[in-house]
Computed example of a mutant assay.
Amino acid sequence: MRGGMNNMQGMMKQMQKMQKKMQEEQEKLKDEKVEGTAGGGMVKVTVSGHKEVVDVEISEEVVDPDDIEMLQDLIIAATNEAMTKADELTSERLGKHTKGMNIPGMM
């Protein structure tokens, strides 16, 4: 019984340490930026690690008043790419703290 308690306490300390490191990484992510592009770089969307759009750049050449739908599609494509990169960045940063840990209920 005593060994089980020590094991549980050790796991709780390990979880607290992991939680603290993950919170620190979450804070750092807000300053990270990723970029998604579409139309060969004609549309660029920059997103923070917290998945907030922080910048949109649109080249003049892609602005056609007779084809607003294409511009909208390019903005959507660039934004989706940037969001995917933000998700990957988050997984990479936070996942490194849980690697090798056998935590029930977590993958």
Rank of each mutant, 00 (worst) to 15 (best):
D31N: 11
D31Y: 05
D31I: 01
E32V: 03
E32T: 08
K33V: 12
K33E: 14
V34L: 05
V34N: 06
E35V: 15
E35W: 07
T37E: 11
T37I: 12
A38V: 07
G39F: 09
G40N: 11
G40E: 12
G41R: 04
K44F: 15
K44W: 14
T46D: 03
V47N: 04
V47K: 02
S48W: 00
S48H: 00
H50C: 11
H50N: 14
H50P: 11
K51P: 14
K51M: 14
E52G: 04
E52A: 10
E52H: 06
V53A: 09
V53Q: 02
D55Q: 05
D55I: 03
V56A: 02
V56K: 00
E57A: 15
I58T: 01
S59D: 11
E60V: 15
E60K: 10
E61D: 15
E61A: 15
V62D: 00
V63W: 01
V63Y: 02
D64E: 06
D64P: 03
D66K: 12
D66T: 12
D67E: 08
I68F: 12
E69P: 00
E69H: 01
E69G: 01
Q72L: 04
Q72M: 06
D73S: 14
L74A: 10
I75P: 04
I75C: 11
I75G: 07
I76E: 13
A77V: 04
A78F: 05
A78G: 03
T79C: 14
T79Y: 10
N80V: 13
E81M: 10
E81K: 07
E81Q: 08
A82P: 06
T84I: 13
A86R: 02
A86T: 06
A86Y: 03
E88D: 13
L89M: 12
T90G: 10
T90P: 06
E92N: 09
R93F: 01
L94F: 00
